[in-house]
Write a protein that binds this DNA or RNA. Sequence first.
RNA 1: GGCCCGUUCGUCUAGGGGUCUAGGACGCGUCCCUUUCACGGAUGAAACACGAGUUCGAAUCUCGUACGGGCUACCA
Length: 515
Amino acid sequence: MRPRVRFAPSPTGPLHMGGVRTALYNYLFAKKLQGDFILRIEDTDQQRFVPGAEEYIIEALRWCGIAPNEGVGFGDGPHAPYRQSERKDIYRQYAEQLVQSGHAYYAFDSAESLELQRKAQEAAGSAFSYNSATRLQLTNSLVLSEADVRQRLQSGEAFVIRLKVPENETIHVQDIIRGDVHVVSSQLDDKVLFKSDGMPTYHLANVVDDYLMKITHVIRGEEWLPSAPLHVLLYRSFGWESVMPQFAHLPLLLKPDGNGKLSKRDGDRLGFPVFPLNWTDPVTGEVSSGYRERGYYPEAFVNVLALLGWHPSDDQEVFSMQELMEKFSLERVSKSGAKFDPEKTKWFNEHYLRQRTDEQLGLALRSLVKNSFGLEEDDPRMTSAFLNAAARLLKDRVQFEHELVVKGEYLFIAPDQYEEAVIAKRWKPELAEVFEAVINAYQAADSFTEEQAELIFKEVAAAHQCKPGDLLQLFRVMISGHGAGVHLFGMVSLLGKQEVIKRLQRALAVLQASV
RNA sequence: GGCCCGUUCGUCUAGGGGUCUAGGACGCGUCCCUUUCACGGAUGAAACACGAGUUCGAAUCUCGUACGGGCUACCA
């Protein structure tokens, strides 16, 4: 049977990278088995709804190359709508059905009165639970007369519908990742299925929709494991046990240091993004940075995420989305939480950057250069020949594309400062005439290839009884301003005869003036 | 507190009773390459939480302890 899986986020804010990983695993699982992957928006909490969050989720998935074939933002399918707020009427009907069959009941206790009970119990050193032990002392259709209940409902009194959890049964959840997980039903409470605001809770909506949308596998975060038995109970109560999906609860993403779930705060504190894309809080205006805007490639981001909790049996670390689709399996997902390591993400980005061609990086460099230095389109430095060559020179020393202009600024802009330490160590006034000779020799050169430029330089050095080693770093500083950088004669050749001569003359003037 | 889940180098992990003097990757150290810095190559330090048990033999199985995490809302 072709699997059908879903990613069902709540639009309560930007999608966290843990959420992206859940989406990714669902997607990979579906693709591997030629199944369907659905995006369903679980917006049943009216209080926590955040405008823009849904659009963010869709854009984030797009950026990562995770494409649902059904669902909000990706073209509806046969089970539309895929937004739970638009399916509101469905849930009431199913909740009522459970009441009719005796698996659920109406409860009229106010949130405040329950809170009071909870506090009282807590003060007494135990915990309050709305369950088989307490339900008969509370205000619900189990204790109220039928007439009373009808009267309350008709008068519009606020009510919720709660699941009547059986008293002493062992509930088993077969989890693909964790095996048999079981709990005694007395530990569960009579969870609210239908809220007084007319919306279902996650538990009801999730189970009903998974059933209606013919979901075969529920792949979600470990935070849902404790409520999985409740969901099993729901399937049973509905009589849907034979089509109940299989469960797979994914290990959590943990903070890089210390303990606990990875949170936005950790990113701020340690300086790495926890979101795929930038997010601007609609209320505070606060911006949280995203991987995309920080210059990460989606391939790198996805690759890292894939390996956080999953690993094939061999030593492969670099995977394209295609390879992930072929190799992924839930059986190889680990059980324990994974601490996120921002460093490794950088390494992956570096790796993917190295795989780009000079042309691709040259193209990236074009807009970077235009923005940073304001070069005109007809500037000789904006030709693809120049940009591609510059990219080739810089490629092995950056992790991100945006570093190309930072580390390669001197390829575009002549330096106006010369690294002090090198000057202090290497510069001697009598060297001026050597560099004058270099200028003259370059002036006379008819070819200015990398090899030619190097050959000429070394000939001049030899003619002045200088070891090239004594001159090279100085030469580099005069050309670029820095004592370290891209391949020297590659840079010289790229800049071209006139520019190099100009820079040398200027450097000589500055150096001689400063002595 | 209760319930559930977990525990191999700093981190991600391989490992499914003997092939483990525990492998790979990131990070870190050293060396080589390079008359720069990187890249690349080589190499090193670095882990089976602890205690019992099962077994001829345990990182691998069982139990306990410790530690960590999750859940415990009319949030998802």
